[in-house]
Design a protein around this nucleic acid. Sequence first.
DNA 1: GAGAGACTACTCGGATACAGTCTGTCCGAGTAAATCCGG
DNA 2: CCGGATTTACTCGGACAGACTGTATCCGAGTAGTCTCTC
Lengths: 162, 162
Amino acid sequence: MILKSQVEWALHCCAILAGLPAGRYLSTKALAELHGLPKEYLSKALQYLSQANLVETTLGPSGGYRLARPPAEITFLDIVEAVEGKARTFACNNIRVNNPCRPKDHCEARPCAIARIMWQADDAWRNTLKNVPLSDLIDTLSEDIPAQIWQDTFAWVLKRAG
Amino acid sequence: MILKSQVEWALHCCAILAGLPAGRYLSTKALAELHGLPKEYLSKALQYLSQANLVETTLGPSGGYRLARPPAEITFLDIVEAVEGKARTFACNNIRVNNPCRPKDHCEARPCAIARIMWQADDAWRNTLKNVPLSDLIDTLSEDIPAQIWQDTFAWVLKRAG
DNA sequence: GAGAGACTACTCGGATACAGTCTGTCCGAGTAAATCCGG
DNA sequence: CCGGATTTACTCGGACAGACTGTATCCGAGTAGTCTCTC
């Protein structure tokens, strides 16, 4: 079980979009070049973000994407779930009902104990992601990345932002 | 991203094996019938458990599997990792190095900030699973499942345990 | 010079192929039990 | 009746196909900007 690479791409793109001046858009083409990714496929990841109302789009020349909300109001979980879906990572198929010793009319009161535990772990995972807003990532990145590169990057981006 | 069904099967099988009297083995065939699963494929899940030294095997008539350690010393994480592998759920491809504004000789001091956060969530997930020993599952199950079914099941199992 | 209309070029979005993993199945090597035979 | 060799039947383990999701790509619908023509 491994998250699709789209998740990584979407997170990186959101980090860039979060640094855009208000009202500016950035195209898929620019985002793809910046990260060295296949433009057409990255487009699909951004579509997921659009369908989840995390980003807004504009068409035509100088069109592209921008965040639909301030970075402080977008969490990692929002982005991950937009790409991966909201389904739990553990699917319970209720195989306990196949137990030949179980009366056919027996009705289970609670979800399978195994599923409950696996879902607790899933909740822990999601809660961690839910507690990290996109703005936190920007703060961390601005500490990690040397100021020169940081500035150059956004100069590069602004030149392409419509 | 969803865990493979083998994980569910392995957990259920371990729960049954945990209830076996010391020294008895239970065959794949019996485990498959009990859970209504394809015997040959379930066998592969049990192989993972065997390779991880969670269970011991014996061949020949009345052969099968038994736990290699007391249930209190086997955690959910042990079982899940035996089947799914120990790789993190988020793979960082370091796409930040493709940034055209980054000097080619620049060496990153720390892992990508995005990866660090995703790995924190992964740790939270794993820690939850690590804190649930198999013995806890047995306790929960014996509360959930009506005593009659519980007894019938283990009578059924013992009849087939070699 | 200003405004309206048509044109163009660029964008996103969905529909379409390819690959890798998960799922499912098969058969062979090996072993413990059961059987049979001799003492 | 007892002990040992043989047979047997059952087990696990790895090798072999099919289905589904993830990956990658292409092309069409639509729009914002630009240019041109008219007033």
